[in-house]
Amino acid sequence: MEIMTDATVTIIGWVGFIFCTTAYLLLNFKVLRFDGTRYQVLNVIGGLGLVISAFYFDDAPNLAANGLWVLIGLFGVFRYSKRLSRLRKSNRVMDAQ
């Protein structure tokens, strides 16, 4: 039994494209910041959709490019969420004083 059809994977790829493109568009309209978690999460979700599509259709260059895109996005999510956590801790200490 085949879990995914060509049509399903194509839709996943298009959704990934929409997420990545929307993130970039919102970044350029200054709705999102490059150092914000929302921008990075949109890129990770979009990149994953494109990776699934590239893997399914055996498109190695696209798989490599979008796999790297996802890793960079995950690094950004981790980095910026860690920074937010430190800021929140710092604010709690200042509020307690």
Rank of each mutant, 00 (worst) to 15 (best):
residue 1 M to R: 05
residue 1 M to D: 13
residue 1 M to H: 06
residue 1 M to T: 07
residue 2 E to C: 09
residue 2 E to F: 11
residue 3 I to D: 00
residue 10 T to V: 05
residue 11 I to M: 11
residue 11 I to P: 02
residue 12 I to M: 12
residue 13 G to A: 10
residue 14 W to I: 15
residue 17 F to I: 15
residue 17 F to G: 15
residue 19 F to G: 05
residue 21 T to V: 11
residue 22 T to G: 05
residue 22 T to Q: 08
residue 23 A to G: 06
residue 23 A to S: 10
residue 25 L to F: 03
residue 26 L to R: 03
residue 27 L to N: 04
residue 27 L to C: 07
residue 28 N to H: 07
residue 30 K to G: 00
residue 30 K to N: 10
residue 33 R to S: 04
residue 34 F to Y: 04
residue 34 F to W: 12
residue 35 D to M: 06
residue 35 D to H: 08
residue 36 G to R: 07
residue 36 G to N: 06
residue 36 G to Y: 07
residue 38 R to C: 03
residue 38 R to V: 06
residue 40 Q to N: 13
residue 40 Q to Y: 03
residue 40 Q to D: 14
residue 41 V to I: 13
residue 41 V to G: 01
residue 41 V to C: 02
residue 43 N to W: 05
residue 44 V to M: 05
residue 44 V to W: 03
residue 45 I to N: 04
residue 45 I to A: 14
residue 46 G to R: 02
residue 46 G to S: 01
residue 46 G to H: 01
residue 49 G to F: 01
residue 50 L to D: 03
residue 50 L to Q: 08
residue 51 V to P: 08
residue 51 V to A: 05
residue 51 V to R: 01
residue 52 I to P: 01
residue 52 I to T: 14
residue 53 S to G: 12
residue 53 S to L: 07
residue 53 S to P: 00
residue 54 A to P: 10
residue 54 A to Q: 01
residue 55 F to Y: 12
residue 56 Y to T: 09
residue 56 Y to S: 10
residue 57 F to K: 08
residue 58 D to N: 09
residue 58 D to R: 13
residue 58 D to M: 14
residue 58 D to C: 10
residue 59 D to F: 03
residue 62 N to G: 15
residue 62 N to H: 05
residue 63 L to A: 06
residue 63 L to W: 02
residue 63 L to M: 11
residue 64 A to T: 13
residue 64 A to C: 12
residue 65 A to R: 11
residue 69 W to Y: 11
residue 70 V to S: 14
residue 71 L to K: 00
residue 71 L to T: 14
residue 71 L to D: 07
residue 72 I to V: 15
residue 76 G to L: 00
residue 78 F to K: 00
residue 78 F to Q: 02
residue 80 Y to L: 02
residue 83 R to I: 07
residue 84 L to P: 02
residue 84 L to W: 01
residue 84 L to T: 11
residue 85 S to R: 08
residue 87 L to Q: 15
residue 87 L to E: 08
residue 89 K to E: 12
residue 90 S to H: 01
residue 90 S to W: 00
residue 90 S to A: 14
residue 91 N to F: 02
residue 91 N to R: 09
residue 93 V to W: 04
residue 93 V to M: 11
residue 95 D to A: 14
residue 95 D to T: 10
residue 96 A to T: 11
residue 97 Q to N: 08
residue 97 Q to K: 09
